[in-house]
């Protein structure tokens, strides 16, 4: 009975992890894709957090969409899933910290998570709580992959010689 359950868990986890992997890949591809068309705006979104000098924010804002897309493609392909998930988790923790810091300082900004952000117009309320909750959800996906990085339909699997 117990052995049966363990065996089933061994079979089920790669599928759960596969869903997490593709979900996280979609998150990065969408987030990066929405920003990559206007790098200047992306730089301004980083600048709106008022953490870095503008020159630094500009470079971060320009590099970030490309990093997000690259990470999305790596996860989609399933290459070095544990590492890609670890980097995803690290990025998400940084993003959450940024949003918390903007919240604490009372800044009125759009987080720029899935847009090119910036200051909010008069009367618009920031949605920091929702943004953080959403990022925590993504962090959970990354957590699943860190814990169980073996997935179906991945380059990792092919290279390792897993039977698919």
């Amino acid at each position: 009975m117990e052995i049966g359950q363990t065996a089933r868990a061994t079979q089920v986890w790669p599928w759960i992890s596969t869903v997490a992997r593709l979900g996280l890949a979609a998150v990065w591809l969408i987030a990066g894709g929405l920003k990559v068309g206007d790098l200047a705006a992306s730089g301004r979104a980083v600048n709106a957090y008022q953490i870095f000098p503008y020159e630094v924010a500009k470079v971060i804002g320009a590099a970030q969409p490309f990093l997000e897309i690259a990470l999305g493609l790596l996860l989609l392909a399933g290459l070095a899933v544990r590492l890609s998930a670890g980097i995803s988790a690290a990025l998400l923790v940084i993003f959450i910290a940024g949003i918390v810091s903007a919240w604490v300082r009372g800044l009125q900004i759009d987080c720029g998570c899935f847009s090119t952000g910036g200051a909010l117009g008069a009367g618009a309320e920031p949605a920091y709580g929702l943004d953080i909750a959403r990022d925590l959800g993504f962090l959970a996906l990354a957590g699943i992959l860190l814990w169980r990085p073996r997935t179906r339909f991945s380059i990792d699997g092919i290279l390792m010689g897993d039977d698919q």
């Binding site: 200047a40 470079v59 320009a62 590099a63 970030q64 969409p65 990093l67 493609l73 980097i87």
Partner: peptide
């Protein structure tokens, strides 16, 4: 496999960051 995929991932991310910087 782990070694080479790790190198691959790091290389891809470094190149992606560099493309962004160059575009800006």
């Amino acid at each position: 496999v782990t070694l080479w995929t790790t190198i691959g991932v790091v290389a891809v991310l470094v190149i992606a960051g560099f493309i962004g910087w160059a575009a800006a």
